[in-house]
């Protein structure tokens, strides 16, 4: 069937079977492999993407459900100039990356949280990551990276507010 949706700010139209997941659409049909396969039962979060700005497991979304909607994957996360986003840079400098397999999903989960609040507590950050499993890092440096980004963004925002 034909599906039209916004993928990383670009309109795309695909003709795919109706019974595939969004995860399969992204990987097997569009070959966008930044979104990872982990469990395919909605437990690990490796396949996290933003659907209309909300964090979802793409393995639990059927492809036809994205018709007319907006999907952001890890390939669509970057700063305005196309370089890595502040959150991605902070993942690097905080040492949040080891094997890296959960990291695209973790970046999406972090981004989803920061769209909701720029003043999360560490405990709120941990809660926002409960749907994303990581076996390497023990989560601590991932929490650090998101906390650092929240602080930087909220400083930039308050700076902007003052200027207005």
């Amino acid at each position: 069937m034909e599906i039209t949706f916004i993928l990383n700010r670009q309109k795309v139209r695909v003709d795919v079977p109706a019974d595939i997941t969004l995860l399969s659409l992204l990987r097997d049909y569009l070959h966008m492999t930044g979104t990872k396969v982990g469990c395919e039962v909605g437990e690990c979060g490796a396949c996290s993407v933003l659907l209309d700005g909300k964090l979802v497991d793409s393995c639990l979304v059927l492809a036809p459900q994205v018709e007319g909607r907006e999907v952001i994957t890890i390939e669509g996360v970057c700063a305005e100039d196309g370089s890595p986003s502040d959150l991605q840079k902070n993942f690097i400098s905080a040492g949040a990356v080891q094997c890296g397999y959960c990291i695209p999903g973790m970046v999406m989960a972090g981004e989803a949280l920061l769209r909701k609040t720029l003043k999360p507590t560490r405990s709120e950050i941990r809660e926002a990551l409960t749907g994303n499993l990581c076996r390497c890092t023990g989560y601590q440096q991932i929490v650090d990276a998101i906390e650092m980004t929240a602080k930087q963004r909220s400083q930039t925002q308050s700076g902007r507010d003052k200027n207005v």
């Binding site: 930044g34 993942f91 890296g100």
Partner: peptide, 15 residues
Amino acid sequence: DRVDALEKVTGAAKY
């Protein structure tokens, strides 16, 4: 910094 962190945070690293 980890030498492979950049390609991993952008989703470019291939498994």
